[in-house]
Design a protein around this nucleic acid. Structure first.
Lengths: 335, 335
DNA sequence: TTGAAAGCGCTACCAG
DNA sequence: CTGGTAGCGCTTTCAA
């Protein structure tokens, strides 16, 4: 089924059918009607690949995220998509699952699709890949990795500052034995996130003991990391989690061990996803405005926006949200 | 940047470049090497639209879901994608947010993309749309809506049976005042889900009082629906939720009202998503095997599989999972 | 207001 | 093993 068949049936040329389908209002309305009739009768659906190829524009924006299961990423997606749709763009997503190979494949896929713009919300970035992207001359926006340049805009949250906020809060409550629970790619020498924690924690007076652990991102990962941490005999009075999603899993492990939050252990998250407020107790966390990030990301990519801030760096300020999961430490008592 | 430039630089024809890029191992390895070198130097990325157009196959499978924020849908996506990737397919997702308009647009988009197969995991289906899909001659698999025919395979869960299971369980525990909390598209005259509850509940002996409420799908929706339900003065001893995601939100509202689960109110979910086990208390629910559904969906679409069960109907049996959120009713006492 | 035709970038077939 | 070339289905001048 193609334009030609429709044209034939409507008794016009393919050019005219194309005009009708694209709302180029130069077509006589009688003609238009005949064309539309033929389209409907034939159940015709234009081939988007042909359209993209001929038109030279894909009307598509790509989003690559580390873990769409984590509501943090999903929220950004939703916001980005809403803005994109208003402007007439589709958004197509690739999930990396924190796997560098899938990251590379995802980027290549997006370039192959000739996306009009690409948003990268991933925790790790290979420098070579950034180069590849820069050469591809596709407008890009990176969240939290890389540096602004030519066609690349950067949105970054001051993660360190957020962690400092949290650690400071706990320290001022009197906590002196802290733990950090990350996910795999947030631990290790290259990780901003672990570094942020370690630095925050080492400058404290009076000094604190600390330890770290990690598993996958997510509920199950949080539970397993907490299990590992607590099995080693370390008894933190407060646990700082890399994000809310993981923290919700940690909460479960603490409960299973008969540890009450915040009475026995204080717990913090990061991101302020909806789930954080639905936990019992609701999590003290850092608010990261995902809607805003999605909006800014689209604005940075929007080909229709001349004033789009290309190659800029945008900084988002984290904000501490106090809820029920943190309190002063108490000496543990068995019930 | 196109094949021709690469061909020129490598001193070969575009046909040869194409062969190299498609691993048609008929190319002399010296030639292949030269081509690959040119590709790398030029940072060349084949245009997937042109490829699809010329090749006639999109290597893409579409998935349309009602609410990717709900882990139920995400889990199916993950499973479907894993199987698809192994077979060399990309999967591209469209989210409808339970909006019929977005459903239609999503379907058209997928047809326009000439997907090799389309999985529809949505709760409502317009008959006209099904017709459109059938005419498009795209292999389809529907979850829980529509009926099997020509190119359409059907996977259905016996939702009624699941609900009957749950209601029976609660009734046998002694509950006589039940409520059903759905989401918008699960309530109303056309809804399978509400019907399932109402039917289950009306056949019970001794008889029970019941009521229903609904808001959006999700944590916030569950909370709001519960608020609405409980504000009306009805005091159910057990609440049956349309799914786990919503139930997790209901849990929060109950807690806020000082109602303890399961002491004051029993609560049930549906789907057995990971979150259901991380709630406090963990939810009694019905297990729906999302991995299996994703696998079956791909199998039904797989163009490479001759034995693919086209036009069949596949039935999935629900299974009751007992956890801590249900117990016999007790007379309420203030602490 | 409409039609004819030249591409868009790639694959696949036919020759050599 | 490699090159030439005819499409794939659509958009977009250029003429009429």
């Amino acid at each position: 089924m193609n334009l030609e068949e429709v044209a034939k049936r409507a008794g016009v040329s393919t050019a005219t059918v194309s005009r009708v389908l694209n709302n180029l209002d130069v077509v006589r309305s009688a003609t238009r009607a005949r064309v539309l009739k033929a389209v409907a009768e034939l159940n015709y659906h234009p081939n988007l690949h042909a359209r993209t190829l001929a038109g030279g524009k894909s009307h598509t924006i790509g989003l690559i995220a580390s873990n769409m299961e984590n509501p943090f990423f999903f929220d950004i997606f939703r916001s980005l998509e809403a803005h994109a749709r208003l402007a007439g763009y589709e958004v197509v997503v690739a999930n990396t699952d924190y796997d560098p190979d899938r990251l590379v494949r995802g980027v290549r896929l997006m370039i192959g699709r000739r996306v009009a713009g690409l948003a990268m919300v991933v925790s790790e970035m290979d420098p070579g890949l950034i180069e590849e992207l820069a050469n591809a001359r596709i407008p890009c926006v990176f969240y939290d990795v890389g540096a602004a340049r030519g066609n690349i805009t950067n949105i970054r949250v001051d993660y360190s500052r957020g962690i400092r906020c949290i650690v400071g809060h706990l320290h001022s409550l009197g906590h002196r034995r802290l733990a950090f629970i990350g996910h795999h790619s947030s631990l290790g020498p290259t990780s901003e996130r672990e570094k942020a924690f370690v630095e925050s924690v080492s400058h404290l007076q009076p000094a604190v003991e600390w330890q770290t652990a990690a598993d996958r991102d997510g509920l199950e990962g949080g539970r397993l990391a907490a299990r590992q941490l607590l099995s080693q005999g370390f008894q933190p009075t407060a646990i700082v989690c890399v994000n809310d999603f993981t923290a919700a899993g940690v909460l479960r492990e603490l409960r299973d061990r008969g540890l009450s939050v915040p009475r026995d252990v204080s717990l913090t998250g990061f991101d302020n996803i909806t789930l954080s407020e639905f936990c019992d107790p609701p999590l003290t966390t850092i608010d990261i405005p995902r809607d805003e990030i999605g909006r800014l990301a689209f604005a940075a990519l929007d080909p229709g926006d001349e004033a789009a801030p290309q190659g800029r760096e945008i900084v988002i300020e984290p904000r501490l949200v106090l809820r029920g999961s943190t309190a002063p430490p108490q000496s543990r008592r068995k019930p």
